[in-house]
Design a protein around this nucleic acid. Structure first.
Lengths: 233, 233
DNA sequence: CGGCGGCTTGAGACCACTCAACAGTGGTGG
DNA sequence: CCACCACTGTTGAGTGGTCTCAAGCCGCCG
């Protein structure tokens, strides 16, 4: 539980520039948590008690609409903070976080936030830039939703996923965590049926290879061309 | 240009808790700018040189898609900061800002940011919360785009505009700055034609009164019910 | 008072959704 | 170890909400 090994986190950008004693200091207040596949880290609407730093694995952040539909906000990669409701002045979590594979995260109680912010000036800057990056991504997705048809939205979503966690294989670039048609649909505002049809069509054209919770992009550059849709072919 | 009167800004939440000398100190580095209606404060892609605080008027933040379409990100109300690219580690402005009515804003050079952040600890917290609020709003809109049909998206957009700048009149609540069908379409990912049809239908049902660049909601509660669509009537 | 920017309305087409049925696939328990 | 079952994915048919294209109107500003 406690006794976090500093070697796990020393090279993460969040803690860049800290001395070893400062690092130990920050880690003393944290717990290390293990989440089984499909385990819930926290739930939307719940009182926010902690903020997290993902060390291993992958976490899906999703929101439930008033009408009961799920929307996927993002996939969190190792090294990223999540559940930072405290930092943005929220007392409840605005989304649900679920481990998509077995995962390990550090968790600090919210009460540790002000102190850490005061002691580690880079934390504030880093958090602001993270928020800014997410705001940008969110606005980019908003633009895509507003102006692009489904096929191009899916292309953009896959490209983002690749840049976040793409693993080179002999066949192409594989998204290195399980992702279903349903997940992709909930990221792009469509249905799993339409995603399935489009992936099938792409597979026929040799653009991707995909299977159960698995997508490999054969040629990312070609997919990018399709996403920006200059070539109609 | 310079010589900013502190009485203009003393009660703004950003500067809450500062002494008068601190306030003068912060304002010394700022210029006061006047923007005519439809004047551009800064343009997407341009080198970010300053960050702004809107004092009077209203500013529209919009983004241009790679295919040349405009998307409206938000309307900025007095008291809000905008163009804070520096804070989130961007060297270029990610959007374009245009005054929708004659407006006045304070502008600080980006070089002033680190110093202000160090001198006024509340500024960092305030900025983080602002970013958090915008991220939330952006994600809410994403959810709406993903799951709601156009009519309800427009209802939600109008309700947000009302909460931001609604002015009570004898007919209902008026959006207190000029807004066209086109603007609403670019906020909700639809066309001005569809917006026009829907507003016409609402007008027939007595829900709104609208005209050239002007929308008054007769009964916000009823519009909210339509937005959440429990009653089908 | 003329013209331009904003708004309205109709007709037709199409993309993506819904509904529906079925087919793999992997994990699990007997 | 194998059979079953639940989960995930595929594919077809029909429908409808929204877009596109098109024409004309209104009201403000110069």
């Amino acid at each position: 539980m406690s006794a976090v090994d500093r070697s796990l986190v020393a090279e993460l950008s969040i803690f860049a520039g800290l001395t070893l004693t400062e690092l130990d200091d920050a880690l003393r207040e944290a717990r290390s948590l293990r989440f089984a596949k499909n385990a819930v880290a926290f739930e939307q609407g719940q009182e926010a008690e902690s903020f997290f730093l993902l060390l291993h694995g992958r976490v899906r952040a999703q929101k439930l609409t008033p009408t009961g539909e799920q929307v996927v906000i993002r996939f969190i990669a190792p090294g990223e903070m999540f559940g930072v409701a405290m930092a943005i002045g929220q007392s409840i979590y605005p989304a649900t976080a679920i481990a998509v594979v077995e995962s390990v995260a550090l968790a600090w109680p919210n009460s540790a936030w002000p102190g850490m912010l005061a002691r580690f000036p880079t934390l504030g800057v880093h958090t602001m830039q993270t928020l800014g990056a997410r705001l940008q991504e969110s606005q980019t997705r908003l633009m895509e939703m507003s102006t692009l048809e489904v096929e191009r939205r899916i292309a953009h979503a896959l490209l983002r996923l690749l840049s976040q966690g793409g693993k080179q294989t002999t066949e192409g670039v594989l998204i290195d965590f399980p992702i279903s048609r349903q997940d992709i649909a909930q990221m792009t505002g469509t249905t799993l049926h339409t995603v399935s049809r489009i992936l099938s069509a792409w597979e026929e054209r040799g653009l991707v290879v995909s299977g159960r919770q698995k997508v490999t992009v054969r040629n990312p550059a070609q997919l990018a061309r399709l996403a920006d849709a200059e070539g109609t072919s």
